[in-house]
Each structure stands twice: as structure tokens, then as C-alpha cells.
Design a protein around this nucleic acid. Structure first.
Ligand SMILES: [Mn+2]
Ligand SMILES: [Mn+2]
Ligand SMILES: [Mn+2]
Ligand SMILES: [Mn+2]
Lengths: 222, 222
DNA sequence: ATATATTTTTAGACTAATCTAAAAATTGAA
DNA sequence: TTCAATTTTTAGATTAGTCTAAAAATATAT
């Protein structure tokens, strides 16, 4: 099955907007992510659906099919390997490589991808701490610990919750904390066991004790 | 000026079909090179002409403008640097890298190109012996002539091929001829224009006419 | 010089991907 | 439950790049 680079970008967007909740991804969310119009998204989704890469019911949002997910994960693998190459071998900074990887991720050759992987020493995580899928599409596992066990300067990624209650999850939504959110610990507040953290956009945020003691995070590997 | 990858491929084709004779490149030659139809070529040439990348007069063929030549040379620089990367760093054979470089040559970033150049140690020639233009577009000089122009006693180094087809490159592999191979001409066989040469290990080898007439070599200075 | 063959251009149509504007479906608040 | 706001889809148009078939220009052979 041939996929154009545009189709690959749509599949990647749907992949990253998909939650485990089983709900389809909305047309508007995809349009926003890809900086395009909702009508263009509807068009493209119809085409992806005809190719069997997504499951789509009008007005109900869209989900990746098994084949669509495989394509998306292969592109993500290439994206993260190229980012690793650019940082580790060419000396780029981690904040300079994303747009280049957006181009390189569409180069077609599993032989090249696998040789690049081995040239880099089969890295498990990219320069942003994100897991690099292996040839067969499986993501590496990471050690997860409670946020409260980290201290100032530590850089972490939200990777789970030890309390799955609706109340806690909804509270996390309100705090704009979700799986994959990157944080840097600024300060541990002894007074009430809360924690001051910095988000990727540079803004600081105070996390209350209830969150600090229940949120599972993974240390970013350098 | 934005150029699409398709436009880049046309400019590159016109560049490599251009002779010093000052005559324009014909529509049919371009169509043949790019495996497309003459009518498509006419269309694209009209567009390149409107962008000022080529000089075009109906029925008179097409020439690159200064700006068009700059674009072509930048693409060629990337193509040859990526080929060098694939062979020197990822361990591909020289007959496996061309199609991959056809994709990689369109990645847009002079910063990436220049860093790749320096990562490779600023190579002057690609894995096929072709010169790699520098950042400013100038080609390194090296006197190369066809093997057939040499005679008994001459000592030479293989520095290129005038035919880069996979079939020819693989034949050279079978003959154990590669860039950097040192040879001494023993005898020119008039009967079929083949040539007897001596290798560095002292063994003699008969090179058929097809090789003698396509292999580019540089004279060894003593 | 004329006729024929070849090359090149034009005309018209197709596909992928996009857009704007309008219609239809869904959501959600009174 | 009804109506207004929001979301999503449809309709129709545009652009880059391509194609086939036909017309026009150029080259070649008698
Ligand atoms: Mn990235
Ligand atoms: Mn992309
Ligand atoms: Mn090449
Ligand atoms: Mn190309």
C-alpha cells in the first residue's frame, strides 16, 4: 500500500490525538493540529477510509485501523530516529530538530531506517524523551515512579496515574496534565507537599499534594 | 524563491543534459531522462520560465538561468553528500545509494547540509568519484580522462565512471574495480579495444572494451 | 522544392490536496 | 422539548502535475 506524505501526516496526527477512551478523533481537532480546514480533513478522512487505514462513521470521528496504526508508528519511528541522528551526530540542539524530522520522516526505505537505527546504537528514546518504536512496532517500556520522588531540576514525562478514579482524571484534565506532558521540577514545597513545576511553554505551575503523590512519571533520559 | 521537488528534478535534469555547446536542451531529451511525456515537459518548462529559472524559446530548447543553475547545483550538492553519508557512515554499497539520494536531495535546510558536510569531513568527491560542489557552488577540479586514452606503462587511479547504471557498477564490483583502485596499463589490445592492466598485487587483468571506454581515471603522479 | 517524418506544442481531461461558502447534523441551554 | 450555537459535511472552485490525442512547427529525404 502506497501512502503519500500528506496521508502519513494525517495518520500521525490521528495517532497522537487518540486517547485510550475509545472515542474517535474529531474533525476539528485534526484540522487544528494540521493547521488546515475542517472540510479538507473530511475529504482526506474519506480517502483514508476507502484505503482501509481508518475506521470512519460520519459525524462520529475517526479511529486508526490496525494497518493505519502500523503506518503511523513506522513514520514515528523514522521521525524519532532522525531526531536522534540530528542531535547525537550533527550536533543540533533538541529544540531545532523537529521541523527537519518532519521532512526526513517521509523518506521511504526500511533498509535505511534500520541501518540508521544501528548506526545510532539502537537508541530507545529520542532527544525529547519519547520512546522510539522498534522495527516490529513495539514501544520500549520505561520505569515509572511517583512524581513525589523527584527533586529540583529533574525532567520528567507524565506516563501514568496510580489513582484512576473519575474525579482524579477529571482533575488532571483541569490541570492540563495528560499522558506525554513534559515537566521540569522547580521546587518541592515542604509546607504541604505540593510541588512547583515548569511546563514546556516555560510557564510555572503549582501541583497540589494529591497530584504529586498519585502521578506516575518517567525520568527523561539524556 | 520556493521550488517544489518536481521543479528541482527538472532543473537537475536540464543541468546534466546541458553541454558546453550553448545549445538548448530538447524537450524530448528531458522527457526521456525523467521518464515522462514531452507534453508534461513543455508544461513544466513554461512554469520554470515564468519563475525565471530557465530561458526558454518555443521549439528552441531550454537553458538554465543563473538562478536556475544555482538551485540545480544546491540539489546536486545535497545528493552527493547524502550518497557519501550512506556509504561512509551507514555501510551501503556504492550501487545501492542513488535512489535513496534522489529522495534525500530534496530535504530543505542549508544548515543541515552544511553540518552533514562537516560531519563527513568535507569530502570533495562522492562514492562514484563525482565532484561535490561547495557551499558557494564551486566544483573541485580534478583531471579525469577515459581509461582508453592511456597506453602501456601509464599508472592511474580509478576516480569515476561515465556510466552510473546499476548494471555497470555491479559489473565493476565483480571485476573488483572501485574508486581508488591503482592500475598500470600493460597493453592495449587493438583486436577488440580491450586492455590488459596490472593490479597492485601484481596480478594481470583483462578489461573489456565496455569498461575501458566508460571508466574515468586520474594519472598517478610520481 | 515538395512531401514525409519527427519534434514540439496545444487542447482538454484527470488526480491529489486544498480552499470558501453553504447546508446538514449534532449538541446543549433555556 | 425546542431553538440556537457549534460541528461537520457537501458543493463547487483552484492549483500542481500528469496524461492522451491532435495540431503546429521543424527537420529530412527525394
Ligand atoms: Mn519531533
Ligand atoms: Mn511530516
Ligand atoms: Mn547519484
Ligand atoms: Mn529527485
Amino acid at each position: 500500500m502506497e501512502t503519500t506524505y500528506t496521508e502519513e501526516n494525517y495518520l500521525k496526527a490521528i495517532w497522537s490525538l487518540s486517547t485510550k477512551s475509545g472515542k474517535g478523533v474529531s474533525t476539528n481537532k485534526i484540522a487544528e493540529r494540521l493547521e488546515t480546514k475542517a472540510s479538507s480533513v473530511t475529504d482526506m478522512i474519506r480517502r483514508l477510509s476507502e484505503k482501509g487505514l481508518v475506521d470512519y462513521i460520519k459525524y462520529q470521528g475517526v479511529k486508526l485501523s490496525d494497518e493505519g496504526r502500523e503506518v503511523a508508528v513506522r513514520v514515528i519511528r523514522k521521525h524519532r530516529l532522525w531526531e536522534s541522528f540530528l542531535v547525537d551526530k550533527l550536533g543540533f540542539n533538541w529544540d531545532e530538530v523537529h521541523d527537519l524530522a518532519e521532512q526526513l520522516e517521509h523518506i521511504r526505505s526500511t533498509e535505511l531506517t534500520d541501518r540508521l537505527d544501528s548506526f545510532l546504537g539502537n537508541p530507545k528514546f529520542d532527544p525529547h524523551g519519547d520512546p522510539i518504536p522498534s522495527r516490529d512496532g513495539s514501544f520500549p517500556e520505561r520505569e515509572r515512579r511517583l512524581l513525589q520522588s523527584f527533586g529540583p531540576g529533574d525532567e520528567i514525562i507524565v506516563t501514568g496515574v496510580s489513582d484512576s478514579s473519575v474525579a482524579f482524571l477529571q482533575f488532571l484534565n483541569r490541570m492540563k496534565l495528560e499522558l506525554g506532558t513534559h515537566l521540569r521540577v522547580v521546587e518541592h514545597i515542604d509546607f504541604d507537599q505540593s510541588m512547583l513545576v515548569q511546563r514546556e511553554d516555560g510557564n510555572e505551575q503549582l501541583l497540589p499534594q494529591g497530584v504529586v503523590s498519585q502521578l506516575l512519571v518517567t525520568e527523561k533520559l539524556n
